[in-house]
């Protein structure tokens, strides 16, 4: 048996403990104690769990790739934590009180407050959401623009998935792209899809001088597809953007 100290950062606290608690229990660990705090940037969950040594890495893998987890660290109780940040610019550790958390190198935190403010409007007017996205783009600091749009995209994608595409079996990545991502994205923009590559032809977010870098679409696809495929973590790589002079915006989806 081992005891692990796990610290997780998520964009919101609702249901976080329940969802991650299920992962803990599914890996035959038990929750010894937990603490959930929130600040303007998001929710911070600290857990002490106990369970079989052989399940440790499986648990860390599942928590580290969970769709609710923006960043994650785990260590044996009493040892120094190992930080496992997700490979997205939205990954970040908050400076939540009272627990001192090390800042991740190179991580850019989204402006969760602004994103939370805009989300109900996105839901209300979906799919006519570009005015709100432009408003979000203009309301956040330049340094957090991309990560904020990505977070808004991820939340919107996850919402659309739950609303319109959740019924049915988990799919492979190729099928999920074809049957979920493409029709969902077509509600927002004119697109072309070739295998795991998606090209957005006329995004109003990506005109020259606007530097969101298609981050909203990347987050949107991640949120949309993470719930629909098995295993459940999807990554979107930004290959090119009209805002940066490319002929069209290109995204590559992998898992």
């Amino acid at each position: 048996m081992v005891e692990l100290e796990i610290q997780v950062f998520s964009d919101r606290r609702e249901g976080l403990l329940v969802e991650l608690g299920r992962v803990v229990v599914a890996n035959h660990f038990s929750l010894v104690r937990q603490r959930l705090t929130q600040d303007r940037r998001g929710a911070y969950l600290s857990m002490l769990v106990r369970g079989p040594d052989e399940q440790r890495f499986a648990l860390e893998e599942m928590l580290g790739t969970h769709s609710r987890v923006l960043s994650f660290e785990a260590a044996l109780a009493g040892e120094t934590a190992v930080i496992c940040a997700k490979p997205t610019s939205a990954s970040a550790m908050p400076l939540a009180e009272p627990v001192a958390v090390p800042e991740l190198p190179g991580a850019v935190m989204p402006d969760v407050l602004q994103v939370e403010h805009i989300l109900p409007k996105l839901a209300q007017d979906y799919p006519q959401i570009y005015p709100w996205l432009v408003a979000l783009e203009n309301s956040v600091a330049e340094s957090v623009r991309e990560s904020s749009l990505m977070l808004a995209g991820r939340r919107t994608g996850a919402w659309v998935y739950k609303r319109d595409y959740a019924l049915g079996a988990k799919l492979g990545l190729a099928d999920a792209i074809k049957r979920i991502a493409v029709p969902a994205l077509r509600q927002l923009a004119e697109i072309e899809q070739h295998g795991v590559h998606v090209h957005i032809l006329n995004s109003p977010l990506c005109t020259p001088g606007m530097h969101s870098g298609c981050k909203f679409y990347g987050g949107y696809l991640e949120g949309l597809l993470s719930g629909s495929i098995a295993p459940g973590k999807v990554f979107v790589r930004h290959l090119g953007c009209r805002g940066n002079g490319a002929a069209l915006c290109s995204l590559e989806i992998s898992h």
Binding site: D164, Y165, L167, G168, A169, L171, D175, R179, I180, P183
Partner: peptide, 10 residues
């Protein structure tokens, strides 16, 4: 059809 498609055809 029921488990793999989405939308009206499903």
């Amino acid at each position: 059809l029921a488990f793999n498609l989405r939308g009206p055809l499903q």
